[in-house]
Structure formats: structure tokens, C-alpha cells
Amino acid sequence: MNFPVQQAQGPDRIGQSTAVEQSRAVAEVQAAIYVARQFPRDVGRSRASMQAACGSMALAEKAFYRFPRAGGAVEGSTIHLAKTLAQAWGNIQYGVSEMRRDDKYRQSEMQAWAWDVEANTRHVLTFIVPHAKFANKQVQPLIDLRDIYENNANNGARRLREAIFAVIPDFFISEAEELCRDTIAKGDGKPLPDRIDGAVQVFQQLGVDADRLEQKLGRTRAQWNGADIAQLLITHKSIQRGEIAIDEAFPQARITGSEIKKSAGGAKKQGPPDEDPWAGKPTT
């Protein structure tokens, strides 16, 4: 009696669950394109939504980052602002995923993408994230699974920010950044002296006294303006997120606060320092 021989499943054979998932993904893409064409974005409404969001301190204080590089500091927009602008612009899908983890070589292959469904513009970034960090001027491997996850998430967020900004018009991003800076400079309605006192108290909790703040800004406390408070707020948020160390943000002063006050008293007018991102702009 002959029994039929069951052949092994070949690598090119697709299982039922895989086929269902592929069909679902295709239908999802088709539905997204259909909906985007049926409900195209209204640029005026998108701008109004963006302006309302950027006028909130809840977003503005998280909109920028600051970290040291090559003896200076780099500042830019965060993933929080990028996601908010994607929602305001509309008809945009985005995501980040870990495609493959290689524990032998201590690295993960990841992908971040953003897709303007209406314009059919897609930006994809595939990158390798080593399971390591740079600390104390040397590379240290990451062993703990939570550390690896957080390292991958941080790198993924940065690439996702780039992908989102790549599919949103530059004018939309520039206007949002300017509004967020204005919101930070104006504050939450408190008088400027109260905001200055609050900034000094917050940094005192980190071990940074008023003299070091004055040295950083290049002017006395009595001369601070809204832009100065905004710069301090961005720096404080970056310290909280671990993007910059306190000593890197506020090097130990080589001159004292009293010397700054003495030199400032004889000066007619002192403008913002060269590294001030609001240099040359009118103060509020």
C-alpha cells in the first residue's frame, strides 16, 4: 500500500496568516489613499491648528533640544514638535520599528519612515544602532535589555523626526519654530521679574547659582529679557532629558558676578551674545 508523501513547505510558500496580513496591509494602504483624496488638507486650517498648538507653553517648552558638540552647542526641534506638526498638517502617517536585532554583533537594524498620503511622498531611513553608548570619552557596551531598548528608542526618535520634517513644507516648520520661541519668550503670562526669579530658583536646585547664569548669558540678572529666559528654559529641559551635562551647559565662571555687574555699569548698552539664537531680533 502506497502512502502519499507530504512534501516539506518550501521557503516560497506563504502561510494563511501571512497571506491575510499581506492582504490587510494592502487594503489599509488603499483605504488611506482613498480617504486622503476624499478629504484633502486645508492649508489654512492646518496653519490655524499649528498656531494654536505652538501658542501653548505645554508644547513650546518641549519644542527644542540643546546638546554639546565640538566645543559648542547644537540646538534644534524635538520629536514632540515634529509629531504635532504632522498632526496639524494632516494626511501623514509615520512610524519607527526595529527590523532585526543581532545580539552577536551587538546592534539593531531599524527603520523610520514618514508618508504624506495625499501627496504620495514617502521618506524612509534605514539605519544601524550599536548596543553601546559613549560616556567618559569611551565607548561602553550596553548589556541590560532596558538600556538597549531605550537606546534604540532614542535613536529611532531622532530619525523619525528627520523623516517627518522631510515630508512637511519648510515654511510650515519655520513658522512653527518661530511661534514656539515667541511663546517661550513671552512666558505664561507672569511678569518678567517673577520669571527671572523662577529661573534662578530652578537652577539653584541643580547647583547652578546666579553668577554662573549671568556668566552664561553675558549680562547681569537685572538686564535679562524674555529671550534670555527662553534660552535658560531650553537648556534646563535639555539637562532634564540628559542631552547635556550641567558643567557643559554652565562652565565654571572665570569672572565673578560682581565683576560682570561692575563692567556692565560702565557700559552704555550691551546686546545679546553671539551664541544667542535670538541675537538681532527685537526683545519683548
Rank of each mutant, 00 (worst) to 15 (best):
F3S: 10
P4W: 05
Q9D: 12
G10H: 09
P11M: 14
D12H: 10
R13K: 06
R13N: 14
S17L: 14
S17K: 12
A19T: 00
V20S: 03
E21Q: 12
Q22D: 01
A25P: 01
A25M: 02
V26K: 08
E28F: 11
E28S: 10
Q30S: 13
A31G: 02
A36Q: 01
Q38C: 09
P40C: 11
P40L: 09
P40Q: 05
D42T: 10
D42M: 04
D42R: 01
G44H: 04
S46C: 11
A48C: 13
S49N: 15
Q51H: 11
A52W: 07
A53E: 10
C54F: 06
M57S: 11
A58F: 09
L59Q: 01
E61D: 06
E61I: 00
K62V: 00
A63F: 00
Y65N: 03
R69P: 03
G72D: 03
V74Y: 03
V74H: 04
H80Y: 09
A82N: 02
K83D: 00
L85W: 01
A86Q: 04
Q87F: 11
Q87S: 08
G90Q: 08
G95W: 12
V96D: 05
S97P: 01
E98D: 15
R101M: 15
Y105W: 14
Y105L: 15
R106H: 09
Q107E: 13
M110C: 14
Q111E: 15
V117S: 06
E118G: 01
E118R: 12
A119W: 04
L125S: 15
L125M: 08
I128Q: 09
H131W: 10
A135L: 15
K137W: 07
L142M: 07
I143Y: 08
D144M: 04
N151Q: 14
A153V: 05
G156M: 02
G156N: 01
A157S: 15
R158L: 12
R159K: 05
R159Y: 09
A163W: 05
I164G: 02
F165D: 03
A166G: 01
P169K: 03
D170R: 15
S174Y: 13
S174D: 15
S174A: 14
A176W: 03
A176K: 01
E177H: 04
E178M: 07
C180T: 00
D182R: 07
T183V: 00
T183L: 03
K186Y: 13
G189W: 00
R195T: 11
R195C: 07
V202Q: 09
F203R: 04
L206A: 07
G207F: 07
R212K: 08
E214W: 02
E214Q: 11
Q215T: 12
L217F: 02
R221C: 03
A222K: 07
Q223G: 08
Q223E: 13
D228T: 13
A230M: 10
Q231T: 03
L232H: 06
H236D: 05
I239Q: 00
G242S: 06
I244C: 03
A245H: 06
I246C: 03
D247A: 11
A249N: 05
A249G: 11
A249S: 13
F250D: 09
F250T: 03
Q252T: 15
A253V: 04
R254W: 10
G257W: 05
K262M: 14
A264T: 12
A267W: 05
D274Y: 13
P277C: 08
A279V: 15
K281M: 09
T283A: 15
T283R: 11
T284I: 14
